[in-house]
């Protein structure tokens, strides 16, 4: 499968990936509305971590033996047959947070929608290139 490769040496910590991810996963898909008009505001599913001069953007690795999937008691966390991405079926999700407890990278968040659900990178379902990769000005993320 194609995965997002992280090049921490190129990351400048600008957080454009976070902004684009948030907008992509908002209800309107529009930047101003997503930040100003939607309550609760959507969460970015990629996170820029920083320490001193070092920074990188981190999102789900869609692990082969994904512990989040193995430990999900509802089957909400599943692997897409076609893309091999690990995705959360929000209808099935009960917000038990077994997945959060299991992810070694800490990249799943609790999101309040009509109910509380697990929120994580979905490789921008259907997009050819995930928006974090597409909008990184310095090629610190690559999709290959």
């Amino acid at each position: 499968m194609k995965r997002i490769r992280i090049h921490e040496e190129y990351c400048i910590g600008c957080r454009l990936c976070e902004i684009n991810c948030l907008v992509k996963h908002s209800r309107s898909g529009k930047i101003i509305k997503a930040f100003r008009g939607e309550e609760p505001r959507s969460l970015p599913r990629v996170r820029v971590e920083e320490e001193g001069y070092l920074s990188f953007a981190l999102q789900c690795r869609h692990c082969d033996d994904a512990p989040c999937l193995e430990n999900c008691p509802t089957g909400a966390m599943y692997r897409d047959e076609e893309t091999q991405a690990v995705l959360c079926d929000e209808d099935k999700c009960i917000g038990c947070w077994m997945c959060i407890m299991s992810c070694p990278l800490g990249v799943i968040q609790r999101e309040r929608k009509t109910k509380k659900v697990a929120s994580k990178c979905d490789l921008c379902r259907g997009e050819e290139i995930p928006v974090c990769v597409k909008n990184c000005p310095n090629e610190a993320l690559a999709y290959e």
């Binding site: 971590e49 981190l58 033996d65």
Partner: peptide
């Protein structure tokens, strides 16, 4: 606190390790 605070080898192992390709 996040992955960035962890020793580089461990972090890279997790992110690029055998079962978790980048």
């Amino acid at each position: 606190f996040g992955m960035i605070n962890l020793p580089a080898e461990y972090r890279k192992h997790l992110v690029e390790g055998a079962s978790i390709e980048v």
